[in-house]
Design a protein around this nucleic acid. Structure first.
Lengths: 225, 225
DNA sequence: ATAGATTTTTAAAGATTTTTAAAAAGTCTC
DNA sequence: GAGACTTTTTAAAAATCTTTAAAAATCTAT
């Protein structure tokens, strides 16, 4: 769940933003003073901050500077009724990543939020490890690991295992596997899927207790405990 | 030196931007068609892209999508005379990090550029020495060093090693390497990647214990211990 | 313009993976 | 439990991929 903190004293605006973002599956907290904002940002682990400039106590510009000292990574989108070039430049110079002038259209706010989060995610490197039942698949170096033991896979083995790990608990037909791992054309005469499932079983569950790849007769294969 | 590519067909606008940015010590290249832009971005290592939406050949939106496929890290600031909410949302959805409506004030453009670069720098770190497993690559003088021993590299060798060192522990396919080191067109008939990996191995690991560049058959090459 | 260096191309031997096919083992139905 | 059918295992053939070396082409600096 992505958590966003909205710092805004006008209840009408903050609830409008909150409602809209909630509909897009973001979790939203509201701070209605600068003081409250600083505390909340300190205490919680937000993914993004929406910061109004005009607040009753501390200015948004100052809040942004404060936050940047301790949390330079947190994306900040500044919001303000002040729309002159100098206002924008000041806001951005104080450390904001974007500056949107009020009144704004919700869709633009949303698109800008998404752009900021997209950039953040890129650099954080979203996890590249797929996990299932003690088995880990590293999609960067294309290796597998089970209980600390490295397992080397060939290209087709990797491709097949990745497909299974992306669909845990889901039954995959031979036709579907053939299509995804080998390409479109399924030639009914071949049993390569079976052969490769067998190779994979030898590598990932020989010498281990739990089976992970199960056969469902007449249907296909499934990854489950 | 920070390098910025400006994609803009109106000479008046592009020279205005170039002049302003030059004064702030940015190096600026101009592309006046979409085609040229794609080539230049591919061939050069820009720190930021300023992209006009209305171009004579390909739309900026499409260019942005293309670029995002291969260079998701490159910050893109989209520029356009189209100022409706839908235009902005489209631009941002195509992968741009920011969207500025023309006419704009230069100071705002500059502040937004700085905000984008600030965020990028935070995550990149700015050392010019890439290190991995006792091997050091100096991106300033383009030399390598292992256990105190200087290693001279040719241009292609350097380019290949830099790519590997920027992606430690990540498996890189031949296609990807070909694209990044040689340029766009991958002719399946050639094995230059293999040949150059071999050159590099001779230079950086002949006479040393640990192998650094590993082959993963059927997949590509990877830099790891 | 030339020598030397670098890059690209080619080709072939060696290694590994993929495919095929058939025998063995297992499962379900009656 | 027998017969029919499905799945697993195995091993060898075929295909593909990797490494290596050397020749040809191109580039660079004097």
């Amino acid at each position: 769940m992505i958590r966003i903190c909205v710092v805004e004293d006008e209840e009408k605006v903050s609830s409008f933003i909150k409602k809209g973002l909630n509909e897009h599956n973001y979790e939203v907290d509201i701070a209605d003073t600068g003081e409250a904002a600083l505390e909340m940002v300190q205490a919680n682990d937000y993914n993004l901050l929406i910061l109004d400039v005009m607040l009753p106590d501390i200015s948004g510009i100052e809040i942004c500077r404060q936050i940047r000292k301790h949390q330079p990574q947190l994306p900040v989108l500044m919001l303000s009724a002040l729309g002159t070039i100098d206002d924008k430049v000041n806001g951005l110079h104080s450390g904001a990543d974007d500056y949107l002038v009020k009144p704004f259209h919700f869709n633009e706010l949303l698109a800008r939020i998404e752009a900021l989060l997209r950039r953040k995610k890129l650099t954080d490197g979203d996890s590249h490890i797929l996990s299932f039942g003690g088995l880990k698949l590293n999609t960067w170096d294309k290796t597998a690991e089970r209980e600390g033991k490295q397992i080397n896979l060939t290209a087709k083995e990797y491709s097949l295992l990745e497909l299974l790990m992306n669909n845990p608990g889901k039954l995959l037909s031979r036709e579907y596997i053939m299509e995804r791992v080998w390409g479109i054309n399924f030639d009914t005469g071949t049993n390569m899927v079976d052969v490769y499932v067998n190779y994979l079983r030898n590598k990932i569950q020989k010498g281990f207790d739990k089976k992970l790849i199960h056969t469902v007769i007449g249907m296909g294969y499934i990854l489950k405990d």
